[in-house]
């Protein structure tokens, strides 16, 4: 690792006040992301993945009734301390975002080419003609046939896969240093998913862009991320190099999740090793480890104390009784 990371997040917290009481959606999450690297954030629905990244870019904050804490350093600058105008400048130029539903980032009543060019005019000072020409180039680059004609169309005239390509073109138009992709392929079919993930990876490599890839699909993370952070109930419970995470998870939740997956290499009707219970209700959290009610290694201490993130070099986990076992990949789990 050379110099400061591109993005450094420390003790990020996001709280909401709901009808059922206060809720900690994100509870003290820290991570670093180096230039050009991909961090996969995995976790199930409600684990806080989206709220975390949205809070980093100001989409979740005081204005949306949330209480936000912690520090976010982008190229060494504290984003949360920046004046609003400078913050918007960083967002426009250096950070691109792609969401699960491309319509979130597309304007239904504006022509596609114009939408792609908008950022270039605002943030990169291109004139209308140059922006329009660059928009067509970008459309070609993200794999849209007949780019010139498509640039004059509206989002509803495109298929879901094409819309996501357009959303990607918008996100990368200003050549950002960081791309945040929140479940970018969850709504798409598996063959289209593959094409979009290939596209993201290619753009990322060619541009030396860093990426945060949020997904609930461990398969997607396995194939695309350099590092993975596993979230459970608002906390980062394990962070590791992708291979290490899959080969020898430390956190019992990660281990249980990997063991519960059906494997293509197993014969039909192989019994799955299910995790009992379900994720906790964040508004009804007690002290102790959030995974304790479902954990086979739980001890009294786990019920009473919250395990803090422990670091072994770049590898972190939050557990009193970390695993050292090898669960293998396609070879099946060691008991």
């Amino acid at each position: 690792m050379s110099g400061a990371p591109l993005l450094s997040v420390r003790e990020a917290r996001v709280g909401f006040f709901t009808a059922r009481g206060p809720l900690r959606a994100v509870d003290g999450v820290s991570f670093d992301l180096e230039k050009g690297q991909t961090l996969g954030i995995v976790g199930e629905s409600g684990s806080g993945k989206s709220v975390l990244v949205r809070s980093l870019i100001g989409l979740v904050g005081e204005s949306s009734g949330a209480e936000v804490g912690g520090q976010v350093l982008f190229e060494g600058r504290d984003l949360r301390a920046l004046p609003a105008r400078e913050f918007r400048g960083v967002l426009g130029r250096d950070i691109g975002v792609v969401f699960q539903d491309p319509m979130t980032s597309l304007n239904p009543v504006m022509k596609i080419g114009h939408q792609i060019g908008e950022g270039l005019r605002l943030n990169r000072g291109l004139d209308a003609r140059a922006a329009a020409a660059r928009a067509v180039e970008l459309l070609t680059e993200v794999g849209i046939p007949e780019a010139e004609r498509r640039a004059g169309q509206y989002p509803h005239e495109l298929s879901g896969g094409m819309r996501q390509r357009v959303a990607i073109a918008i996100a990368i138009a200003c050549a950002p240093k960081l791309l945040i992709a929140d479940e970018p392929t969850t709504a798409l079919d598996v063959t289209v998913q593959r094409q979009i993930l290939d596209l993201l990876q290619r753009e990322q490599r060619e541009r030396g862009m860093a990426m945060i890839l949020i997904t609930h699909d461990l398969g997607v993370a396995a194939g695309r991320a350099d590092d993975i952070m596993v979230m459970y109930a608002g906390r980062a419970v394990e962070t590791a190099k992708t291979r290490e995470l899959f080969r020898s998870p430390r956190m019992p939740y990660t281990e249980a999740l990997l063991r519960s997956l059906p494997r293509l290499t197993d014969p039909t009707h192989t019994r799955l090793s299910a995790i009992p219970g379900r994720p906790p209700d964040l508004a009804r959290r007690s002290g102790g480890c959030a995974f304790a009610p479902r954990c086979r290694y739980r001890t009294d201490r786990c019920d009473e104390e919250q395990p803090m993130q422990t670091w072994e070099g770049a590898r972190g986990y939050a557990c009193f009784h970390p695993r050292g076992v090898d669960v293998g990949g396609s070879g099946g789990a060691a008991e």
């Binding site: 598996v190 063959t191 998913q193 593959r194 993930l197 699909d217 461990l218 398969g219 997607v220 396995a222 194939g223 992708t242 291979r243 899959f246 990997l258 997956l261 293509l264 990949g329 396609s330």
Partner: peptide
């Protein structure tokens, strides 16, 4: 379809669809 399956194993190379 088979080649597009994202396998939860970083050592399985991505197939070619």
């Amino acid at each position: 379809l088979m080649a597009a399956i994202p396998e939860p194993d970083p050592d399985v190379p991505l197939g070619d669809t």
